[in-house]
Design a protein around this nucleic acid. Structure first.
Lengths: 229, 229
DNA sequence: CGTAAGATTTAAACGCGGTCCAATTTGCGT
DNA sequence: ACGCAAATTGGACCGCGTTTAAATCTTACG
C-alpha cells in the first residue's frame, strides 16, 4: 500500500458533510476569489461559527487552504473531491432527466441527495448510458473523470449587443422555481435566438426565438449564458 | 397538524442509521421471533454494546419495542419505516438490473447505499418505470406503498420430495459471491426444474432444468425457495 | 487616527452513533 | 439448585458536525 498507483484513496472521513462543503467552496472560488465563511454558511444552511469550525477541520485534513479571517480555497486534494462530486451531481441530473424523465427544475434536488451515495461503478454506468455527455441539463460542464474541466466560452446574455444572434448554453441558477419559469419560456440550452433589446435602467430584455418573442426581467436574463453564432 | 391524515410524518431523526437498524430488526423478526442484540450488531457491523445503546434510543423514539435482556421487535411506526426502506431497496434492485443493467449479484450493495437517500417521488418513478413489480430480482416480495406484504407460499427447495417439479421463486442470500454462483448456474426466479434427488447426510442436491442437470451443495440449496407446479 | 460596525473565530456544550471494558443478567448443564 | 459461560447492559469516553454566546479581528469612515 505504498505506491500511489495502489492508493485507491482510503478517503477516511470523506463523508456527506465534507463533500458538500468542498462542493460549495469549489463553486465560490471558481473565479479565483477566496470563499468567505458567511457565504459558505449561508449556502449550507448552517451558522457562520459552524462553518468556521468545519473549515478548520477541513484545513487539518488538507482539503482546504484556510487563511484565518480571510477565507478558504481548495487544496488539490479538495479540488479533486469537489470535482468528483460535481461530476456525479451533473451526471445524475442528466440521468434523472433523460432516463427517468424528471423535469429539469426537479433534478438538482434529487441529484444533491444522491451525489454522495453513489460509487464509481454507478457513475461510470450512468456516463456510458448517457453517451458520455459533456454538459448537465442546465448547461454546466461535466468534469471529466480525471478532474479536468474544459474551458468555457459561454458569455452572459446581458453582454450581447442588440440584434446579436446566439444560442443558449447555460442557465445558471439553483432556484427550482426560476428554472421552471425559464424552461417554460423555452429558453433551454441549445435554443437559438436573436437579442432584440436590453431596456435601460434594469428594464426588460427582449429576445426572439423560433417560438416567438419573450420579454425577460433582469434577474432572469442575468442567469442566461450564451454563445454567439 | 392534528389529524392523522395530515401527519405526513415529520420523521425527525429518521436518518440512515435508524433506517438500517429498523430494516435489520424487521428481517430478524419476520418469522415472529424477537431480534437479539448480538445478531443485530453482527449484521450491522457494530459492537453489541453499540447496538444495545442504539436500540434503547429507538425504543425511546417508539420505533422498536424493547424487552431488556430479551430482544426487540418493531412498533407499528417502526414497521412502517422498515417496510418503506425495504420497498425502496427492492425497487432499486429491480431498477438497477432492468434499467441500468447491473448484474443480479451487484444490485444489493448499490441499493443499500441508495435506499435511504431517495424520496417518495423517486420511489414512485421507479415503480412506474418498472411496471409496478411485485418481486425484487432475487424473488423477495416488494412491500406495497401502504406497507402491506402479500402472503408468500414459497417453500424451501429442500422440503420437496424427489421427482417433484417446481419453479424457482426466491434465492435468499445477501452474499454476492454465492448469488453470482447460483445465477451462473441458471437458477434464477422463474426457472422451471425437476428435483431429482437430495442425497442424505447433507450430500448434494440434484436438480434438472431445461439447461441440464445441476448438482448443488446443501448451503446453496438451502437458500432456494420454490413453488410446486 | 480612532473607533464602531461587521465578519470571523473561539469556547463550551449538545446530539448522535460509535468504542472499550466492566458489571450485570440470563439460562443451561450437571 | 447452583454455578458458570454467554449475552446484555452501563459507564466513560471519542469524533463529528452542529449550536449559542462571547471574544477577537478587520475595515471603513468621520
Amino acid at each position: 500500500m505504498s505506491t500511489a498507483k495502489h492508493m485507491q484513496r482510503e478517503e477516511i472521513g470523506v463523508n456527506d458533510a465534507t463533500l458538500h462543503y468542498l462542493d460549495i467552496v469549489y463553486r465560490l472560488t471558481f473565479g479565483g476569489e477566496t470563499a468567505n465563511t458567511s457565504e459558505i454558511a449561508r449556502r449550507l444552511g448552517v451558522t457562520p461559527s459552524g462553518a468556521s469550525v468545519m473549515l478548520k477541520r477541513l484545513a487539518e485534513r488538507k482539503l482546504v487552504q484556510l487563511t484565518p479571517y480571510k477565507g478558504a480555497t481548495l487544496t488539490s486534494q479538495g479540488r479533486r473531491l469537489a470535482l468528483r462530486t460535481i461530476r456525479r451531481h451533473r451526471l445524475l441530473e442528466m440521468f434523472l432527466m433523460q432516463v427517468m424523465n424528471f423535469a429539469w427544475h426537479e433534478v438538482d434536488e434529487h441529484a444533491h441527495a444522491l451525489e454522495t451515495s453513489i460509487n464509481e461503478a454507478f457513475e461510470d454506468r450512468m456516463d456510458a448510458m448517457l453517451g458520455y455527455p459533456t454538459r448537465c441539463p442546465h448547461g454546466h460542464l461535466i468534469p471529466s473523470k480525471d478532474g479536468t474541466l474544459p474551458k468555457v466560452s459561454d458569455v452572459p446574455l446581458l453582454d450581447l449587443p442588440a440584434g446579436c444572434e446566439a444560442i443558449v448554453r447555460c442557465v445558471d441558477s439553483d432556484e427550482s422555481e426560476l428554472l421552471k419559469y425559464v424552461g417554460d419560456q423555452g429558453l433551454t440550452p441549445g435554443t437559438h435566438f436573436t437579442l432584440r433589446s436590453i431596456a435601460p435602467y434594469g428594464g426588460p430584455v427582449t429576445v426572439e426565438t423560433d417560438q416567438g418573442t419573450l420579454s425577460l426581467g433582469r434577474n432572469v436574463a442575468e442567469i442566461v449564458f450564451v454563445e454567439k453564432t
